[in-house]
């Protein structure tokens, strides 16, 4: 699936101000709640619980917090760029400044995995991170991501 299918142009926060990991997750949950109509606390709890199993900081300043929510009806993505990098217990120890939140419905199964793999793949493409960090507004960030997205072979 392509990123367009799970990321809408308004699901982007170009310059989030947070002091730490918990606050970052709170902010993401609040934005996601606003866009999906789900309970903010439920989203936050899900994300926090996921982080307890192991950090979703995948290295090079990127984190992909994710989780499953029973009342969600589709895959939901939200991108945030932080003003100041924060410590995220990432795999390589690098502070995180790019967050890609991915929420999935309870029964998403393999689609959840595919979407996660896709997000990771897009972010791993050469140059994408630099361009994301250089982008100044939501539209620019969205464009960078969508341009570099491509569907997986079915």
């Amino acid at each position: 699936m392509a990123l367009v299918e799970l990321l809408s142009p308004d699901a982007i926060a170009p310059a989030l101000k947070v002091g730490g990991k918990k606050q970052a997750l709170q902010e993401l949950a609040s934005h996601a709640a606003g866009l999906t109509g789900l309970d903010q606390q439920a989203i936050f709890e899900t994300l926090l619980q996921r982080e307890r199993l192991g950090s979703t900081g995948v290295g090079e300043g990127i984190a992909i917090p994710h989780g499953k929510l029973a009342r969600l009806d589709r895959l939901f993505g939200f991108v945030a760029r932080l003003e100041k990098p924060i410590d995220f217990d990432a795999i390589d120890g690098t502070p995180v400044d790019v967050l890609f939140l991915l929420l999935a419905p309870e029964g998403a199964g393999a689609d959840h995995l595919k979407a996660l793999a896709r997000v990771a793949r897009v972010l791993r493409r050469p140059g994408v991170l630099d361009r994301l960090r250089a982008a100044h507004d939501a539209a620019a960030i969205y464009a960078v991501l969508i341009e570099n997205s491509e569907p997986a072979a079915a």
Binding site: L53, K68, G109, L113
Partner: peptide
């Protein structure tokens, strides 16, 4: 990039449930 890390003490069942 693109891999999620889990501690050795995480339950395999939790990891599996998470991703269906």
């Amino acid at each position: 990039v693109g891999t999620f890390s889990f501690g050795g003490d995480a339950a395999i069942e939790d990891v599996c449930t998470l991703y269906g």
